[in-house]
């Protein structure tokens, strides 16, 4: 309770200041709606916002699964061969530092103009790919050197080394990578919807665009609030999941 109270008080104070300032200065609501108007907008459109949030979340989760499969598979392959790793790493880094919005048009073309939802999933997966890939790769290489010597000493086969040493050693880094990737997948899904999403897109980004085009600023805020709740909730869930699995991994 002591740790929740200060941020609650701060948020309440900021909201009160915002409300008072809007009324005192007679700010036009399309420029900055007061919190009360945002609250009204939330109450009015929460079923739609909820279904949009679900659309964004399911897009992000699907992207996360795809990214996880590709990243883990690639990290495993690459970790088995030094030359392959040296070859792949610069390409991966180049792709990582390229802004998502810059490759969005290409991905949209490849996904087919009629399937913007595929483009959105693909783009979100690209963003989620890197933390998992680098986490998996670092994890597979983070083996305790003395434990590796023990495997040498007892003549372990390469297969034993992989399944009984490197894969289990990689678990903490893999969990960390997935936690970071889940947050990025939501951001990626929203950004991708902005760039690629039209027509078929049903996510929160689309709600924001829609309200923005009609200058319904309160609804923009309402969608933002929903997005923030979604992000915080997903982060909390992933963190709890990571803790549980780590607990299981090290038995404490």
């Amino acid at each position: 309770m002591k740790r929740i109270l200060p941020p609650l008080i701060l948020v309440a104070a900021l909201l009160a200041g915002w409300e008072i300032a809007c009324r005192a200065l007679v700010v036009p609501p399309y420029l900055l709606p007061p919190p009360s108007a945002v609250w009204t907008a939330l109450l009015e459109s929460w079923p739609l916002l909820l279904s949009s949030a679900w659309a964004t979340l399911s897009t992000a989760l699907l992207a996360l699964v795809i990214a996880s499969l590709v990243a883990c598979g690639l990290a495993l392959t690459v970790s088995l061969n030094r030359v392959l790793e040296d070859a792949v790493r610069p390409i991966a880094v180049t792709l990582q530092v390229t802004p998502l919005v810059a490759i969005a048009p290409l991905v949209t073309i490849w996904a087919g103009i009629d399937h913007p939802e595929r483009a959105v999933i693909g783009l979100a997966a690209v963003v989620a790919f890197f933390p998992i890939f680098s986490g998996a790769l670092a994890g597979l290489k983070s083996v305790d050197p003395d434990l590796a010597r023990l495997f040498d000493l007892h003549g372990a086969t390469p297969f034993q080394r992989l399944t009984r040493l490197r894969l289990p050693s990689a678990v903490p880094a893999l969990l960390e990578g997935h936690k970071v990737a889940a947050g990025l997948a939501v951001i990626g899904a929203v950004v991708a919807e902005f760039v690629a999403g039209s027509g078929g897109a049903q996510g929160l980004a689309w709600r924001i665009l829609e309200a923005y085009n009609r200058l319904q600023t309160a609804k923009v805020f309402a969608a933002l609030v929903m997005l923030a709740i979604l992000g915080v909730a997903l982060h909390a869930i992933m963190e709890a999941l990571e803790r549980r699995l780590l607990h299981f991994w090290r038995g404490r």
């Binding site: 305790d144 003395d146 434990l147 010597r149 023990l150 495997f151 000493l153 007892h154 003549g155 372990a156 034993q160 009984r164 040493l165 289990p168 678990v171 991994w249 090290r250 038995g251």
Partner: peptide, 27 residues
């Protein structure tokens, strides 16, 4: 030949018994 290292060097994901059984299983 067996080696005991500076640190216990146990696999954190294995129980004490499975850690001890490891060299035999590898063989």
């Amino acid at each position: 030949t067996s080696v005991v290292f500076q640190a216990p060097t146990l696999a954190p994901w294995l129980s004490a018994r499975d850690n001890v059984a490891l060299p035999l299983e590898l063989a």
